[in-house]
Design a protein around this nucleic acid. Sequence first.
DNA 1: CTTTCATATCGATAACCGTCGATACGAAAG
DNA 2: CTTTCGTATCGACGGTTATCGATATGAAAG
Lengths: 110, 110
Amino acid sequence: MEKTTCCEPVCCSPLSPVDAESLAIRLKALADPTRLRLFSIVASGEEQCACDLTDPLGVSQPTVSHHLKTLTEAGLLRREQRGKWAYFSVNKDALAELSAVLDPSVLSGI
Amino acid sequence: MEKTTCCEPVCCSPLSPVDAESLAIRLKALADPTRLRLFSIVASGEEQCACDLTDPLGVSQPTVSHHLKTLTEAGLLRREQRGKWAYFSVNKDALAELSAVLDPSVLSGI
DNA sequence: CTTTCATATCGATAACCGTCGATACGAAAG
DNA sequence: CTTTCGTATCGACGGTTATCGATATGAAAG
């Protein structure tokens, strides 16, 4: 049976080195100002073409492509190719999982 | 009136460069395997003495001290000195804020 | 005062990362 | 086939960072 989350909430018990490594990869993917803006732009719409993401960010096309790859490999974005265009959308499950892992409401006294 | 969160959820609207920068600082503080394990150890107890954190992590004392400083400066940990010992505890509000910013449940269709 | 011990800081090193221009790839259009 | 255009990859450069040993700081103990 599949696990529905990557690991226990960070508040419950010490993370194993393996869980910490995989969680860090996903957090690292978001822990950059340019990638955060890129991600939030994609998340704000239904689906975004890569061609529309260079201008609002003010970085070069290779840089956008690089960041999109990082976010996609971390599982936070989904990529779909249509013709010569690449469309990206948010993987809500992965984001919800990340949010849940950080949720401190499981701690006593909150 | 004070804002209760640093910024809008990443799913709602494009982050401003300033908001992205400040959010990235806090995410970056957690986006390291060693710091994640360190943080989860502190979060698992009521309060942790720095002297008890070196052994379970398997890194040197200066490295632990460095990571504790990073997490504290990001607002995720609180530090209290008692005698020659330093005690650390989780700032639940900061963690809850981080969790809320990533929460995708505001998106339609979830 | 001197010693001991917990913690922080310093300086160095190696690895990692964000960014770019140049270029390759691949699909549609002419 | 050739051109055009969107995207990905490459190679390089500069800045950041995780880690360590050595050392400084500062507080309690002797």
